[in-house]
Amino acid sequence: MSELLKNEALKNLFERRSIRSFKSEQIKDEELKEILEAGKYAPSAANQQSWHFTVIQNKEILQKINDVAKSAFEKSGIKRYEERAKAEDFSAFYNAPTYIIVSADEKAIAPIADSALALGNLFLAAESLGIGSVWIHAVNFLYTTEEGKALFKELGIPDGYVTYGSGAFGYNAGEKPKPAPRREGTVNIIK
Rank of each mutant, 00 (worst) to 15 (best):
V134W: 03
A9V: 15
A150Q: 08
D114F: 02
A108W: 03
K23W: 15
G130F: 10
M1Q: 07
A92K: 01
K70P: 05
E25Y: 05
K149Y: 07
I19D: 06
E83P: 00
K40W: 08
A87S: 13
D159V: 01
K79T: 12
P158G: 01
Y94A: 01
I109H: 03
N7P: 05
E74V: 04
S21Y: 04
L129E: 15
P158R: 04
A180Y: 15
R84S: 11
K178T: 08
N7I: 04
I56K: 08
V162I: 09
E146V: 00
E31K: 10
K149W: 07
L62G: 00
E88L: 07
E83K: 01
A85W: 02
A104G: 10
G165C: 12
Y161R: 02
E8N: 09
P158L: 03
Q49K: 10
K64L: 02
I189Y: 05
N172Q: 14
A92Q: 06
I65A: 04
Q26F: 08
T186L: 13
G160E: 05
S21Q: 09
E175G: 02
S115W: 04
G130E: 07
R84E: 09
K11Q: 14
K191V: 10
G165W: 07
T163D: 05
G167P: 02
W51Y: 10
N66I: 02
I136P: 06
F123V: 09
W51H: 12
V162N: 07
S128E: 13
G185A: 12
G167Y: 03
F14K: 11
G185E: 09
D67F: 03
K107N: 15
L36E: 09
N7D: 11
Y41V: 05
K176S: 03
N47Q: 07
P43A: 15
Y164N: 05
E15G: 02
I189R: 12
F152E: 06
S166A: 06
A150G: 11
